[in-house]
C-alpha cells in the first residue's frame, strides 16, 4: 500500500511540476491528466486494499470525467488559439487587465 501511495504522490507532484512549468496549453492539459491519473491510481489502490468494487467504479467515473475535461479543455485551447493566435499560457495575461 505504501508503494502505491508513494508512486501516486510522486506522479501527482510530477503533474504539479508540469502544470507550473509548461508553456504550451496542451502541455498544461497533459500535466492535469497526469495528476488525474495519479488520483486514479490512488482510488484503485484503496479499492484494492479495502476490497469491493467501489474503488474501481469511481476510478472509471474519474476516467470518464477526465476525458470530458480533455475535450472541453481542447475546445478552450482552440478558442484561445483563434482569438489570440497562440496558445502560450505564460503570454495569456488578460486576467490582469
Amino acid at each position: 500500500m505504501t508503494a502505491i501511495l508513494l508512486i501516486s504522490s510522486a506522479l501527482f507532484c510530477a503533474g504539479v511540476y508540469g502544470l507550473l512549468s509548461q508553456r504550451h496549453a496542451v502541455g498544461v492539459l497533459i500535466a492535469i491528466e497526469l495528476m488525474i491519473n495519479a488520483a486514479n491510481l490512488l482510488l484503485v489502490g484503496f479499492g484494492w486494499r479495502t476490497g469491493g468494487a467501489f474503488g474501481q467504479s469511481f476510478a472509471l467515473f474519474t476516467m470518464a470525467i477526465a476525458v470530458a475535461e480533455v475535450v472541453v479543455g481542447l475546445a478552450l485551447i482552440l478558442l484561445m488559439y483563434r482569438s489570440r493566435g497562440d496558445v502560450q499560457v505564460d503570454q495569456a495575461t488578460e486576467l490582469a487587465q
Binding site: S21, Q22, R23, H24, A25, V26, G27, L29, I30, V70, V71, L74, I77, L78, Y81, G85, D86, V87, Q88, D90
Partner: peptide
C-alpha cells in the same frame, strides 16, 4: 485528441513546450 490539439495549434515551435 491531444495530438490533434497540438497539430491544430502548431505555432511558436522554437520556444519549446516548457518555460
Amino acid at each position: 485528441l491531444l495530438i490533434f490539439g497540438v497539430m491544430l495549434t502548431r505555432e511558436h515551435e522554437h520556444l519549446g513546450a516548457v518555460r
